[in-house]
Design a protein around this nucleic acid. Structure first.
Lengths: 217, 217
DNA sequence: AAAGCACAGTTATAACTTCTAACGAACACG
DNA sequence: CGTGTTCGTTAGAAGTTATAACTGTGCTTT
């Protein structure tokens, strides 16, 4: 995952402790959310005293940033693996939902409430591009038709996010709709907004996916 | 907004101070997000010392809960006012986006990342029902057609969230799609996921809305 | 292999936070 | 005009992040 050459034994140890810290941090986040993540609690859980963790992470922010990085990478890997295994757009949607339900807080770490001041590091936007690229690859298989909309014209000019992908505007539009609609259902499901309504989120998700796959015009 | 009868002068004063505290809390949240909301900072900003706020709120959690309550009420009022002013579904969508852009953190307080342990108080779900009711009223004007889907059958049986609204399943479906799709675009816009891509969120929002309004079969 | 040094983990400390407790003072009410 | 409720204060407990200084252990280098 990280540096592929843990040459010296010190680096091996260091990498392992870092991974262990992140492991405990994920547990705490899954249990009580990001705001409840406490460096001290992680240290206590590891049987090590407070400031020891500062040898491995500059602070709470850097740890969280690292977790965000890992979350992006995990989603990108999941997408790429699914696509490589022959999954079509529906398969990608299924993989996305599986991945999100597996650890909702991890999903929210990427697509949840942003902190006003915070800006994601440069490499995460690159991984984010990989995610979109895989999605575009899958969407390219769908028939790109329909009349040109104002959005299509806009997308024709602003396609830098597609990272050089040769998809036509209609496909870009399709991929964007995919992203926003599935995120719409998924984020509300993960936030528990349907559980109080007695609605089965899986059916709603399937309905949205079906609508995307059988898109008219 | 709150209790409509501030009889005694003490109650008047108390209500005003509570409102002032919430005002400052909103500013802090808008500036740095919910996790950065500090009782102490609010007190300092009001020229009053720390524990004084505990006369008005039992603690940080109760203050945040109150802010969530106000956010729900604000959205419900906005929706109802727009509908009463003759807005159709498109008008409601416009009102929603305006309301969200006005204070993104307020939107995320309702539809953002949930805290695993937290459960919203009972009265907020009632206000949430009002929001859905207004949306259903607006959706009722749209032609409810199309073949019955598995989701429609499911909605026929689980329509308690519609709060006795006589809308047919197709309309319930329409309202849900409205909610999830607009939330999908809006939340990603507010989180800044489009700004790095060079995409105009307004166009994407408009495209999704148009697709909802000209829904086929 | 032995000497030296780099680094892990420790305790102590500072500056924060929420929140409780006890005290003084001001203001409303009978 | 007293009497009391309530407000705001200061003091303090328990928690947090983060820094600084110190002590070993063990890797690394000669």
């Amino acid at each position: 995952m990280g540096e592929p050459d843990p040459k010296t034994p010190r680096e091996r140890y260091r990498a392992q402790v870092r991974a262990e810290i992140k492991e405990h941090a994920w547990e705490q986040i899954a249990a009580a959310g990001v705001p409840a993540l406490s460096l001290n609690a992680v240290a206590k859980q590891m049987g090590v005293s407070g400031p020891a963790l500062y040898r491995y992470f500059a602070g709470r922010d850097e740890l969280i940033t690292e977790l965000i990085r890992d979350a992006y990478q995990s989603l990108a890997d999941t997408f790429r693996a699914a696509f490589a295994a022959g999954a079509d757009v529906g398969g990608l949607a299924h993989a996305l939902r599986e991945w999100a339900l597996e650890d909702p807080q991890r999903y929210f770490l990427i697509y949840g409430t942003p902190v006003p001041g915070y800006h994601a590091p440069e490499d995460t936007v690159r991984v984010s591009d990989q995610i979109m690229t895989t999605l575009l690859d899958a969407c390219a298989a769908l028939t790109p038709d329909g009349p040109a909309t104002p959005l299509d014209a806009h997308l024709e000019e602003h396609r830098d996010w597609a990272d050089g992908h040769p998809a036509p505007p209609a496909t870009l539009h399709r991929a964007l709709a995919f992203w926003t609609r599935l995120h719409g259902v998924l984020s509300l499901e993960l936030a528990g907004h349907f559980s109080g309504m007695g609605i089965d989120p899986a059916l709603l998700f399937a309905a949205e996916l079906d609508d995307l796959l059988t898109q008219r015009a």
